[in-house]
Simulated assay, not measured.
Amino acid sequence: MTKLNGITVALLSLVVVGCQSTQAPQSRVKTNAHKGASEYEYAKAPEQFQDSDIELPAYYNTRGLDKCTFEVNNEHPDCPLSKKVLRLYMADPITADTENPNDWLASVRAYDGRQLLNQFENQLVGLNRFRIVTGDERTVKFLGDSMAGMSDAELARRMKNGVLHPDYAMTIDAVKTGELITGGSTNLVDLSLDFSIGFVDPYTQEKISYPNVGKIKVRTGDVKPMSEMQFWMQSGQIEGGFDIYDANAVSAVLNDMSSRGFGIALSRMLSEVPATAQVLGVKGDRISLDRGQNAGILPNETMVIFEYSLGFAEPVGVARVNPSDIESQGKIVKWKSSKDAKRIKGEAEEGIYRPARDAKLFAVSVGTPKDFLASRITSGGVL
């Protein structure tokens, strides 16, 4: 088979809001992907941790813990327990400028990536780890219609908390590539999406190095068997297989590819922006946390437990945690081999260990639980 042609189309640009970065490769694993495409990242199960793995995620700001008020709805913005505000924007899709356009590329160029904005917003909202200011035009129109009949006093009452402002901007540029491969009557179309992600301070317009989500590549084979992308032509007409001239068929594939790309971005963001909670007490191997779903803790979350005292953070164990709406319960699966861990474990075995005023215990997540990826982010549960 010989490559007939290939063309790259700039698809879209997005802006999102983010917060601080963490990376801990020793506490996360990756899935397999198709021919060099990007992989999902998820947290190791606590049972998979070695003693050397029980460490805080990279770039996690423990210094900010000194500023925490421990009031869920009124947390200091520099405290890692506070939620960051996200604002998403998307530019109009950019089409290719080519002197010799191919008819089949018309269906590729017709794909409107702006529909992805609301999908990504909804996925972020479901994590409950960020606060989202929507850019959904339907919502904006609805609010405009609702406010039209309100008195000034009623409008002021409903807007008493003011307007949320973004903490950071995340820019996502996506490039769409299409290749048509022919071998006589049998042909194959192969598409790929490349996401390039960066962060910007929206107030100074300075590009910053965290969170480090990086580049994401999605290929057709990640979402469909390549056999389904074959087609047969006779006298310039498609006789069977995938219809490359059908905009709906092409959009369906690109939708699946885009969903996977955003799913991978979400899995990386959950590693870069961990959930944090304070440990209220330890009884044996059981732990109680002061926050749950309201702080973005996910079911079966893997969390490193650490003691924070006088500016020093000492990891003591790794736990599996399950949240309720405002609190969480968990079990320390492995204790770290250290004096601090042995001291806390010994006291917890004799009764209930309650952290001292000057030596508090905290829990920080290390990545996305694999079962959460399969059930909430990926299409059809396929990683």
Rank of each mutant, 00 (worst) to 15 (best):
V218Y: 02
M303R: 07
P274N: 02
P202R: 10
G240V: 02
M226N: 11
N255H: 13
V213P: 00
D201R: 08
L289N: 05
D246K: 12
N300S: 14
P202N: 12
G311W: 09
G214Y: 00
N294G: 03
G296V: 01
R286T: 12
I287L: 13
D285V: 11
V213W: 00
V318I: 14
S267N: 12
K207V: 12
N294S: 13
V282F: 04
M257D: 00
N322R: 09
I264F: 06
G296F: 01
Y308S: 03
S196W: 06
L254F: 11
F231R: 02
L266S: 03
S258N: 07
D222L: 12
M226D: 10
V282N: 02
V321G: 00
L310C: 10
Q230F: 13
I208M: 07
V318G: 01
L280M: 15
L193F: 13
N248L: 15
L280F: 07
I208F: 06
I238W: 01
D290F: 05
R268V: 08
D190M: 12
S227I: 08
I287H: 02
K217F: 04
L289E: 03
S196V: 14
D201K: 11
F199N: 03
V282T: 05
Y308V: 11
I287C: 04
N255I: 14
D285G: 13
F306E: 01
G311V: 10
K224M: 13
I287Q: 05
T220E: 03
V304L: 10
A313L: 08
M257K: 01
G311F: 08
G240D: 09
A252I: 04
T204Y: 03
G236E: 09
G263M: 10
L266H: 02
D194F: 07
G236M: 09
L254P: 00
E239K: 14
L298W: 06
P323Y: 02
F312W: 09
G221T: 06
A319M: 08
N187K: 15
D222T: 11
E206F: 04
V279W: 01
S258C: 08
I287D: 02
G317T: 13
G311N: 11
L280A: 04
G261V: 05
V321A: 00
R268P: 03
I208G: 06
R260I: 13
N212H: 10
G292P: 07
M269Q: 10
K217R: 15
V321E: 00
Y245L: 14
I297H: 01
G281T: 08
L310I: 11
T204R: 12
